[in-house]
């Protein structure tokens, strides 16, 4: 196996683990009894289980801000809304992703998911997404290809300069918060690649159906 040489010897791995577990125990010294008991249970399970595998993709930076794992990056934004903004945005999102459909977003081809959550009595917006590539690779493309969709999605946030503005990237950065931890099941699968594999899978099943 290609990763064989990176795997540490058994004794190195166990002393690493002991050190990490001791740190965790120190952290949980002040935790509730529920937390302490749970930690000990987890530690016992870890020790009796199979040795840890190397992660398939390391966590790195998505560029200017945010995290990236393999080919996928994360973006979390919390931004104040203009008065009445939440009402308008709810209406627009319902129309866009409900009755109008997701074709427009599907066309982007780099967005795994998007989440809009209204916070603090509709005064703030929490926006989260997982997407392919670096932080700013396609922002300019949004500005020329689907500017109105972006301006409707974020036009009611305070201080929003417009997707075409040269200030747009600084605006996003000023409200973006990098995740402390983030799990990605398939860090090496882009949206495009996932769709391709789906097509291949379907074609293969169809072929197998036909030959017997």
């Amino acid at each position: 196996m290609a990763t064989q040489k990176q795997v540490k010897t058994g004794s190195e791995q166990s002393s690493d683990l002991e050190e990490k577990l001791q740190k965790l125990r120190d952290l949980y010294a002040d935790a509730s009894e529920i937390g302490k008991t749970a930690l000990e249970n987890v530690i016992r399970a870890l020790k009796s289980g199979a040795p840890a595998k190397e992660p398939t993709a390391r966590i790195e930076s998505a560029g200017r801000i945010g995290r990236r794992q393999g080919k996928v990056s994360e973006l979390t934004v919390i931004v104040p809304l203009a008065p009445g903004g939440a009402k308008r945005l709810r209406g627009f999102l319902e129309a866009l992703h409900g009755s109008i459909g997701n074709e427009l977003v599907d066309r982007v081809g780099t967005v795994h998911d998007m989440r809009f959550v209204f916070l603090e009595k509709d005064t703030k917006l929490l926006f989260c997404t997982a997407y392919d590539g670096d932080w700013d690779a396609y922002i300019e493309d949004f500005a020329t290809k689907i500017p109105d969709i972006l301006d409707l999605q974020f036009g009611d946030t305070e201080g929003y300069p417009g997707i075409r503005s040269p200030e747009i990237k600084d605006f996003i950065v000023s409200h973006q918060i990098t995740a402390d931890f983030w799990y990605v099941a398939n860090p090496n699968l882009t949206v495009v690649e996932t769709r391709r594999l789906q097509r291949i899978g379907n074609a293969l099943e169809e072929f197998l159906d036909k030959i017997n």
């Binding site: 066309r107 982007v108 081809g109 780099t110 392919d132 396609y138 300019e140 493309d141 949004f142 020329t144 290809k145 689907i146 495009v192 769709r195």
Partner: peptide, 8 residues
């Protein structure tokens, strides 16, 4: 398969 504006 990725939304791209070739001109930019």
């Amino acid at each position: 398969p990725v939304l791209t504006d070739v001109n930019i």
